[in-house]
Each structure stands twice: as C-alpha cells, then as structure tokens.
Design a protein around this nucleic acid. Structure first.
Lengths: 190, 190
DNA sequence: CCGTTGACCATTTTAGTTTTTTGGTCACTT
DNA sequence: AAGTGACCAAAAAACTAAAATGGTCAACGG
C-alpha cells in the first residue's frame, strides 16, 4: 500500500473512465477511489489528459497482446491477419473502457476522447503494417505499399463489421477472410 | 410569377439550406426569400422535413447526372467506375449544399441531416450496383456479390480520399483507380 | 526533509428561469 | 379557391446564479 500509490491511481482512474467516461470522471473522484489525496495524482501525472494517455497506452498494449495470442504460426498468413483483426475489433466491442469511449465520442464529441481513439486506430494500423512487412520479407505475399494496405485493411474491416450490418445480414467470418485475401495477395501500386 | 410559387419556395429553401444549413434555416426566412406567405409553403409541403427531402432528392438526381456524364462507352469498365466515383466525390466536396450539410452533421449532429446524408450514400451505392450488374451481364468483369462490392467500393473510395489524407500525401488518381481494379476483377465470395 | 495532503482559487459547467424564436395552423382576405 | 400572416404551443436561446472542476501550494507529519 505504501509504494503503489501510482498503481492505485491508475486503477481507480481506469475504473472511473470505464464507468463514466472521460469528461464525467473528476480528479476528486479518482483521488477518493484511489484512497489518495488529490495532489498526489499531480506528482505522477502532469494533468488529467496525461493520466488518460497512460491508461490508453496500457489498453493498446493489452490489445496487441490479445491480437498476438490469436496468431498461429502454422496457418496461412492471410488467415492470421483475419484472426488478429477479428480479435482486435472484438476487443473493441467488448472492453468496457472502449465501449464507453466510443459512446462518449459519438454522443458528446469530447475532443480528448476523439484524439485518443484516433491514436488507438493509428496504433492498430502500425501493428498491421509490421505484420505485413514481415510476411512480405518471408515471401508469403507479394510486396506492396504496406502503409496503404494496412490502412485499407482496417478501414474495410471496420466498414464490414459495423457499417454493413446496419442494412444487411452480418457476413460470415469466411466471407470477411476471403475479401481480405483479395487485398493482400494482389499487388497494389506503390 | 403566378404559377411557379412552388418553384420559388424550393429555390429559396435550397439557397438558405446551402448558406445556413438545415437547423438555422427558418420557415419564415424561406417564405420571405420566396416572396410567399408562410402558409403557402405548407400547401406544397407537409412540413420542413418534407421540403428538405425534395431538395435532397433533386440533389441526388443532379449527382447521378454528373456521374453519368463522365462515363465514356469506349473505355474499360473499371476506368469508368473510377471516373464516376471521382466525379461523385468531387461533387460532394464542391457543392455548397453538400459542404454545409456535412459540416452541420459533424459539428452539430442534426438528426435530420444525418439521415439525409445516409440516404444520399445509399443512393450512390445503388447507382454503383446497377453499373456493376450491367458490367457483369456484359462479361466485362467476373460475377460477384454486387451489393457487397458496391458497398466496399464506396467505403474504400471515401477512406482513400478523406481519411488517408489526414496522415499522408494524397494518392494520385492512377493509384486509386488501380486499387479499385483489384477489387472489381477479383472474385469476392457470394 | 520530502512525499502527501486537502483547503483554496480561477475558470468552466450546470441548473433554473425568463425571453425569444420556430414550426405549424387557420380564420380571414382577395 | 388560393394565398396569407397573426397567432399559438412548443422548443430553443439567453441570461444568471450556483455548483463543480482541474490544478496549485502552504502546511503537515512520518
């Protein structure tokens, strides 16, 4: 209880952000939840936003670990990309903090939240790019502009699992995998 | 001036929506601009939203005509799709009413506006689908789920011309065309 | 001493209230 | 019959007072 004041703060803030969102979480509340004086928070974090950043950073790490865990070395590359993306979006739709943040963005348009979600998306794209670069190096797929294809991959994935379902039957996992394969195995212009 | 009261109303409303957006346009203002008593508007339109619908419907017709005008019968199908889509998005980014509505949606989230923009998107997809169906019938491209590919085509296009440019150099027209071709000439699952 | 604290402050947000504006109607005019 | 604008209930804007919030820092205690 002595040394992990910082940890308690982060845990309290995470809980509060998940429950009430960014704006509705007050620093007083975090301090109380963490059993800590409010001033103490400011010895570890410059301000509310920096505390938020640290929490999002952990969340991103957790997401990457989840994606990584689902990859199997003995299945084809495109299938693994599908598994990883699927896991990432599943994470997004199941993780309490993510749910709350997405909700807060659409309903209130909180700026700090929009920026963070944008950052998370960028991280996912960077992760995908790394994977694609590796697959190209191994000769598993033809070389392309990996920045572009990781970007498109995520955008399409999101469109397929969220926008599509507004007007249509959900697509099967196989269909989604097939669509992505078309992307990855065909050359895009550099 | 006697018979085209209806026309004057529509023109006045179009001008006002383009200038101030949907919410900020009042029926009094439209009546004044149209040189018409307010009650007269309600003999032609049930309410404000229906007036809006009529205007959007014209706008969609105009968009389709623009797209159609750019199609050349003697160039490959995929190139025509590119031209048409390019024209459609150019229209969106140049037409005063569209600009204002997109702005109003992101800044104020006006419900009626969101619904209309959604409707416009659906119309574009329907238009694309018709074109793709035709191309398949002619054997220009392999058969696919045309509902799905028209949806994906538009989503990708929008991602490439708007989201991509937030972090990257704009793509050349050739690059965009090439990406779309990959889609259209490869089989997607039914 | 130094890590911790909570009273304190300037600023922002909220709540409550009044005033104005708006979409829509309809009795009246032309 | 076609057109109108004064009129109304409902919604939005403007105003204000009160409360809450992020952040600071002098004081505290181990």
């Amino acid at each position: 209880m002595a040394t992990d004041r910082r940890k308690m703060i982060v845990e309290a803030a995470t809980k509060s952000f998940s429950l009430f969102g960014y704006k509705a979480t007050t620093m007083d509340q975090v301090a109380k939840l963490a059993n800590v004086g409010k001033g103490t928070i400011y010895t570890f974090f410059k301000n509310k936003e920096e505390l938020f950043e640290e929490i999002i950073s952990s969340l991103v790490k957790e997401m990457m670990a989840e994606a990584e865990a689902v990859i199997q070395p003995d299945v084809p590359f495109t299938e693994n990309v599908h598994h990883a993306l699927y896991r990432l979006l599943e994470f997004r739709s199941q993780h309490q903090l993510m749910i709350k943040l997405v909700q807060e963005e659409t309903e209130m348009g909180t700026l700090a939240v929009s920026e963070m979600l944008q950052h998370v998306e960028d991280e996912i794209i960077a992760y995908l790019k790394k994977k694609i670069d590796l697959a190209i190096a191994k000769g598993a797929i033809p070389p392309t502009d990996t920045e572009l294809s990781s970007f498109l991959l995520l955008k399409m994935y999101i469109a397929l699992v969220s926008d599509w379902e507004r007007n249509h039957q959900p697509l099967s996992s196989e269909q989604i995998a097939e669509i992505m394969k078309v992307f990855l195995v065909n050359d895009l212009p550099k």
